[in-house]
Every structure is written in C-alpha cells, then in structure tokens.
Design a protein around this nucleic acid. Structure first.
Lengths: 169, 169
DNA sequence: TCGGCGATGTTGACATTGCTCACATGGACC
DNA sequence: GGTCCATGTGAGCAATGTCAACATCGCCGA
C-alpha cells in the first residue's frame, strides 16, 4: 500500500540490475543475460542501465567481480583438499556463475579493475593454501579442469569429484 | 571468366558455411560467429543456411564435431606427455576452437549426435593413452584446467606449460 | 525426351538485442 | 527557494536469429 507507486529515481538501480542479471545468469546461463531483460526486471527503461554501466561487458564484469569476492571468502580459510572440493562443488552448483567468472571475460579483466582485483584476491587465497607456487598451480589446474569437464558432461557420470580429489597424494 | 557468374545452387553450401563459420571463429572467437555473416561470406542469402542446419546451434555443433575429429586424430598416437603438451598448445593456438569444443555446447551434445560421436572418440584416445581410468581423468583434468587458466590469463605470464607438464612424476 | 517434383536458395518480415542521442525529472546543495 | 547534475525516459538504428511464402534448378521416371 504505502510503497510509492513509481518513484522516478530507483534508489539503488545498480544493485538491482546486478541482482536481475544474476537471476538471469543462474536461470539460463551466460548467454541468457540481456541488458534489456535485466532492466525490465528492475522495472526500469532499457537505457537506464547505461547510467551505471558503460556497456554490457561492464555489467557482466561487475557481476563476476561480485561473485569472485564471495568465492574467495568461501574458500578463504579451508585446507587444500577442502578447497578443491568446494571449488568443484561451486562449479557444479552454479554453472552460470562459474562460466562467467572463468570465461573469456576473465581474459579481459585488465579492462575492468574491479574484476581484476576481486579475481586476483581469490587466486591468492588458492596459492596460499597450496604450498609452493608450482604446486599451487598444479592443484588449481587439476581442480579447475575437473570442474570444466564435469560441467560439460565430458566425464562419464560414474566419476565422483571427491574420489578424484582426496586421493591425489 | 568461365566460372558461371552466380549459379543458383551453390554446390556444397554446407561445407562452405562451416568454413566461413570457422574463419569467424578463429578470427573473433566464439561470439563472433553469426549465421548471417557466415552466409554473407559464402555469398548466399541469410536464410539459405536453414536448408543445411536446423539453427545456429546445429551449425556450431557441426563445427565442433569437425574439430574434434581433427583433434582426436592429432593426439591419437602420441605418448601421454606429448599429448598433454599438444593439448595445451592447441588451446593456446586456437582459443576460439578450444572454447567452442569444450564450452557449454558440449554439455548439450546429446542433442547433436555428430558432436557426441566425435567428442567421445577423442576422449577415448585420451583415456587409452593414460593407463587406468582414474589416472587418465586426472591427467586430462590437469591439462584441461591448465589450458583454461592460461587462456583466461589467470596465470601470471611466467608459467610455462612445458615446465608444469613434464615434471609431474 | 521431356515434364514434374523435391532439394536448394531467395525475399520479406518480425521480434529481440546492444547502443546513441535528445529530452525529462527531481533531489541535494547554495 | 532556486538551480544544477545525476538519474531515468523515449524514440530510433543497425544487427541478429528465425519464420513463411515464393523462385529456380537438376534429377528421375513416363
């Protein structure tokens, strides 16, 4: 009742757009995110988004950054094995987010400082958990590859992430 | 001179479209492939493509299948270490193809028998080269993850694939 | 040999998307 | 209380995927 019917100014459109994009991402994957649809969900005109993001890529970058922050925090304090399992779990539970975060966009991170910072922070957590640098990379690559292969259904279904990951002595 | 100026029927449009899509893929990556542009390159009207592919996804699937065949053949006879290095090299040399082949499309392979067959064939080659099944998966995941991380620029530039891959005793 | 039919291409159209430009609105600050 | 600037609106453009109706050709049987 009391909620004003349509305030011209939205309050926090930026966050609203990110939330909308997020739901699209989780629902339909990477390609299902559309600026216009996000605006629609946020109840705002298509062009309003451009007051907050330079273009679609910027929106996606901000979204990815947001998720990297969460991701890094979640991994943060766990041991190496636990991190690995959490990593794969995350990928399988949220394929859209995973692919956005580790997709082609990441290669263009230097154009998006937010993303750059958030992702390196997460990576540092990983590197710290593994001992040396080489070992870290190897462990990370293993887990990352496993995530991708599982996600893409390249592995027969009989494979369990835990099995593969807890053995690797 | 002698080439008829514009035969109504193209000859082998299907292959021509695949070639066109391929060049777009190599040039601009996954997202740069457009049905219309491919048709343009093939010198044909936009809708002609639909005589040969149900939709854009089908085109992409056929393309991926084609590359899987090549890929599998290339890996085919090499030893495990050599395979690993070739794998990573391929990813770095042809990011577009790699991402197409191992991207979200692969997860939808059951909708595209061609792709299904070609990819499993390639995977079998991998599995055969590594000894046991678990070892194969682990090796594959390592190499696959490394490819992705390098591609996405997630690894500091100082890392050399060969270094990571030839040591892992 | 020729006539028709199915495979292949073409035209035209529609909805959707990313993005730009010119304009409207209204809250924060003097 | 008045003004400025961040925020939002609307119309519009080019491009894309896709559909439906129509055109053209070449191969196959009468």
């Amino acid at each position: 009742m009391s909620t004003s019917p349509k305030p011209y100014h939205h309050g926090d459109l930026r966050a609203a757009l990110l939330d909308a994009a997020d739901s699209l991402l989780d629902a339909g994957g990477d390609g299902a995110v559309s600026l216009r649809e996000a605006a629609r969900i946020a109840g705002v005109s298509p062009t309003a988004a451009y007051r907050h993001f330079a273009d679609k890529e910027a929106l996606l970058a901000a979204l990815a950054a947001r998720h990297f922050a969460q991701f890094g925090a979640a991994l943060g304090e766990a041991g190496l094995d636990a991190q690995g399992i959490a990593y794969v779990r995350f990928a399988l539970a949220r394929p859209g987010r995973f692919r956005l975060m580790f997709g082609p966009l990441l290669a263009r991170a230097k154009a998006h400082p937010e993303l750059q910072a958030a992702s390196s922070a997460a990576f540092d957590a990983l590197t710290r958990a593994a001992g040396g640098k080489e070992a870290a990379i190897r462990a990370w690559a293993l887990v990352h590859g496993l995530s991708h292969l599982l996600l893409d259904g390249a592995l027969s279904d009989e494979v369990s992430p835990e099995g593969l990951l807890t053995v690797p002595r």
